[in-house]
């Protein structure tokens, strides 16, 4: 298991710089490398190593789901402990379900549903209620104050 303490100073600089942005041009690694004061080959090699070490999940765009049309919501269930795994299996089987997290609370299962319309999301939630017999708490985002998702390496 890799953690921040084992990243070299160069890797740390790369991770921090490239979380902030990456040029969209023909030779983006060359351009990014130049602003880091290294060459293109070195940057690509370090990124490959960081990916193999699982520090990076991927390298690419972070989308704003709201700009796609469609609808996204966060839903929660209060699942009795002895049924938890069975209910997780039912919920995770829907292709519209993205993240699903167990959290410590009476509402102990939290999942994101994304589909092409409000109605399509509602159908999934209704179906989850029918198959589990549990009340779904539907909590779509009403305002977004901040999305950073950047972590200091």
């Amino acid at each position: 298991m890799r953690d921040a303490a084992s990243l070299s100073p160069l890797d740390r600089r790369i991770v921090n710089a490239l979380q902030a942005g990456f040029p969209i041009c023909e030779r983006p690694f060359a351009a990014a490398a130049e602003s880091l004061g290294i060459d293109e080959d070195t940057l690509i090699a370090r990124l490959q190593a960081l990916r193999e070490a699982n520090v990076l999940t991927r390298f690419g765009p972070l989308y704003d789901a709201n700009r796609f049309g469609g609808h996204v919501t966060l839903a929660a269930l209060a699942v009795p402990a002895e049924r938890f795994d069975a209910v997780a299996e039912i919920v995770n089987a829907f292709p519209e379900v993205a993240h699903n997290y167990a959290r410590e609370h009476r509402l102990n299962m939290w999942f994101v549903v994304a589909a092409e319309s409000v109605e399509a999301v509602a159908r999934v939630l209704t179906e989850v209620e029918a198959r589990t017999g549990l009340t779904v708490y539907d909590m779509p985002k009403t305002r977004e104050f901040f999305v950073g998702l950047r972590l200091e390496a």
Binding site: L18, Q19, A20, G21, I24, L56, T57, G60, D64
Partner: peptide, 8 residues
């Protein structure tokens, strides 16, 4: 696209 870059 909110941003393009590495996702840790």
């Amino acid at each position: 696209i909110r941003r393009f870059g590495v996702i840790v």
